[in-house]
């Protein structure tokens, strides 16, 4: 019956037209949000390449007439930034010197702790794990003052060493949690087999578990790196002047430019301070997201 066929065809065509419309609407909304998330980064980058004169004349979205590197040079370590003269280069290295040992120490201890709490279970281990876990949640304001006094008593206040200690200690809760959750899913039979073969506590850890821990090590290192690099509270509470990490220096830089604001320098500086974590995110986004969800949906 051709009449019915025609009718069906018309119906199908209108349905498919509606589907195309929804498809476009879908992409429109997704695109608008993409612009919303990208816009500040775009503004940051174009502003950093402009001269102050161009900034005053033009607006946020305009591309620079020519790409000037002056602001970048000043932000990283040049002259021409009044009041306080904070440049990022030494502080960038401060942060590097702080991040590397703190990440290594907290990750290694977290791995050992996770191993013990899952493969050498003993009475009360759950309570101990809970006490570790709780450390992920405490507002650091509750430990700020005694920590400042402790650092003073140890003679390492206002130093990179002090900040390494602080970050290692308060990272321990997260790293232990990550490794514990990973090792829980590894069958105990593997450990038992190794023990029957005569392997001891450390040998099992280094020869059996660590070789298969690559994914969780990556997740943990990225998590710790991002958190420590981006930290401001500890950095600003326990260090000042030359020992400050980069986020503190960036904030000082933006605040101390008293007379004439140099927005191009501010934006270049902000980009420099955000660059390392951004690179990590772009290169290893999968692991970054896994860390976020593991660090939040406590399992």
């Amino acid at each position: 019956m051709p009449a019915v066929d025609l009718q069906m065809e018309a119906l199908e065509r209108s349905a498919s037209r509606r589907r195309t419309f929804y498809r476009w609407l879908l992409f429109l909304i997704l695109g608008v949000f993409a612009i919303y998330y990208l816009a500040p980064m775009y503004v940051m980058i174009v502003t950093s390449f402009k001269s102050m004169e161009e900034i005053r004349k033009g607006n946020l979205m305009m591309l620079p007439k020519e790409f000037l590197l002056d602001a970048w040079k000043i932000a990283w370590g040049g002259r021409g930034y009044d009041a306080g003269d904070v440049f990022l280069r030494p502080f960038f290295w401060n942060s590097t010197k702080m991040v590397v040992p703190a990440v290594v120490i907290s990750t290694f201890l977290g791995a050992i702790n996770g191993y013990i709490l899952t493969k050498w279970r003993f009475k009360g281990d759950n309570i101990i794990f809970l006490l570790f876990l709780f450390g992920c949640f405490i507002p650091y304001q509750a430990i700020l003052l005694p920590m400042a006094r402790t650092l003073g008593a140890l003679g390492i206040s206002n130093s990179i060493t002090g900040l390494v200690l602080v970050h290692s200690v308060y990272g321990l809760s997260f790293t232990t949690l990550f490794f514990r959750n990973y090792y829980v899913s590894i069958p105990d039979e593997m450990i038992k087999a190794a023990r029957i073969d005569g392997a001891g506590f450390f040998k099992i850890f280094f020869k059996v578990l660590l070789p298969i821990s690559a994914p969780i090590i990556v997740v943990t290192v990225i998590w710790q790196f991002t958190n420590i690099w981006n930290d401001f509270l500890f950095g600003s509470s326990f260090s000042f002047g030359e020992a400050a990490p980069i986020q503190v220096a960036l904030n000082n830089m933006v605040l101390t430019s008293t007379s004439v604001k140099q927005y191009n320098v501010d934006m270049a500086a902000a980009f420099i301070a955000g660059f390392p974590t951004l690179v990590v995110y772009i290169l290893a986004g999968k692991y970054f997201i896994r860390g976020l969800t593991a660090g939040s949906v406590k399992g």
Partner: peptide, 16 residues
């Protein structure tokens, strides 16, 4: 694109 701001510090975000 939607998630990258999470990799930035609040200081960088605030400055921008």
């Amino acid at each position: 694109v939607y998630l990258y701001p999470m990799a930035l510090s609040f200081i960088v975000t605030g400055t921008a």
